[in-house]
């Protein structure tokens, strides 16, 4: 297996990815506007590693997830998964065997007219497991691994609680033994008292199966708990990335600091002056200079004039802010 020669070999590498969508345009309305959903993103995930992806609605995190799954084509740049470029004429089934997704809403993401057995067995058959006995064994084993009983396989989704449905969603994602799982807000639709069960399960499965996670969430507590490294996105770009400790203890980007300050928790009470103002601008019409400048409590004239580049401030800690050097003090969260 020479493509896994080094342990440092990335399982996923996203290289300067941009995804633009044309908006409007047509026979009478002239040239379409370009919505830059993802605008020059690079990141990588090693085998067994968890990368937390943080950002608010419209920041491009879902588009990024879709392009990793090969469901949206890159405008420029590329996604390399396990040594192969995703998209173009790559076989979709190759991608599906390597990366799978766990969705936010376990009510909307399961087919209500399929039994759990069918939901789990169909992907196996599609991927060439034709022996009925083997299919049944793998379904039963998968159900056990996610904490359900094999005899529940013939029930329909409505016969399960929300937490159990999310377990089925996880089983569906893992049945093909992928290497990377994209978890898109995996607990935010669940009752608060159920969330810990699912978070613990995801961490156990990761250890057992050696999975890599791309953990998309707006809940920084969940991201800190589950991630090895973290990337913070704002308006289609990564504005800060680093190890979980650097990001949460010594955040350098004002947006990361604003996200932490916005958590309603007694712990963040002293951070009021780090809060962001106003609302996220439309990605159709991003502000000039640093795109965060209209909301930034620390913006100066230079921020309005020129866009900063993502640059290393420490080993593995990258920030795109003109004033990052000034935010070297740890946040007192």
């Amino acid at each position: 297996m020479d493509k896994h020669a080094g342990a440092d070999q990335a399982l996923l590498s996203v290289e300067d990815l941009a995804v633009y969508f044309p908006i409007g345009g047509g026979v009478f309305s002239g040239r379409p506007q370009m919505l830059r959903a993802v605008d020059g993103v690079s990141l990588s995930i090693k085998p067994g590693e968890s990368l937390g992806l943080v950002g608010e609605s419209g920041c491009g995190k879902s588009t990024l997830a879709l392009s990793i799954l090969g469901l949206v084509d890159a405008t420029t740049g590329r996604v390399v998964l396990d040594g192969k470029t995703v998209g173009g004429d790559t076989d979709r089934r190759d991608v599906a065997r390597t990366v799978q997704m766990v969705f936010q809403d376990p009510y909307a993401s399961l087919n209500p007219r399929q039994t759990v057995r069918r939901t789990l067995a169909d992907p196996l058959r599609l991927h060439g497991v034709s022996n009925a006995g083997e299919v049944a064994d793998r379904v039963a084993e998968m159900l056990r691994q996610v904490g359900l009983r094999p005899d529940q396989a013939d029930l329909y989704p409505h016969e399960f609680s929300g937490g159990q449905r999310q377990r089925i969603g996880i089983a569906r994602a893992l049945i093909l033994k992928p290497k990377l799982v994209i978890c898109d807000e995996p607990v935010s639709a669940l009752d608060v008292s159920i969330r810990a069960q699912i978070i613990n399960l995801l961490l156990e499965l990761q250890a057992e199966m050696g999975l890599s996670y791309l953990m998309i969430s707006h809940d920084l507590g969940v991201v800190e708990h589950m991630s090895d490294r973290v990337a913070v996105m704002y308006l289609g770009r990564i504005v800060e990335t680093g190890g979980w400790r650097e990001i949460f203890e010594q955040p350098r980007h004002p947006y990361t600091r604003a996200l932490i300050a916005a958590i309603p928790d007694p712990l963040t009470r002293g951070l009021a002056r780090e809060k962001a103002r106003g609302e996220i601008p439309s990605p159709l019409n991003p502000p000039p200079g640093c795109t965060f400048n209209p909301r930034c409590p620390h913006a100066i004239d230079h921020c309005r004039a020129a866009a900063p580049m993502l640059s290393a401030i420490d080993d593995g800690h990258l920030v795109s802010c003109w004033r990052a050097d000034e935010f070297a003090t740890p946040i007192s969260a």
Binding site: W244, T268, A333
Partner: peptide
């Protein structure tokens, strides 16, 4: 059961209750 920010830095990654 809530993973609160700052917990991991102080106590390491514990299994959530």
């Amino acid at each position: 059961s809530l993973p609160r920010l700052g917990m991991r830095a102080r106590h390491g990654r514990r299994r959530l209750t």
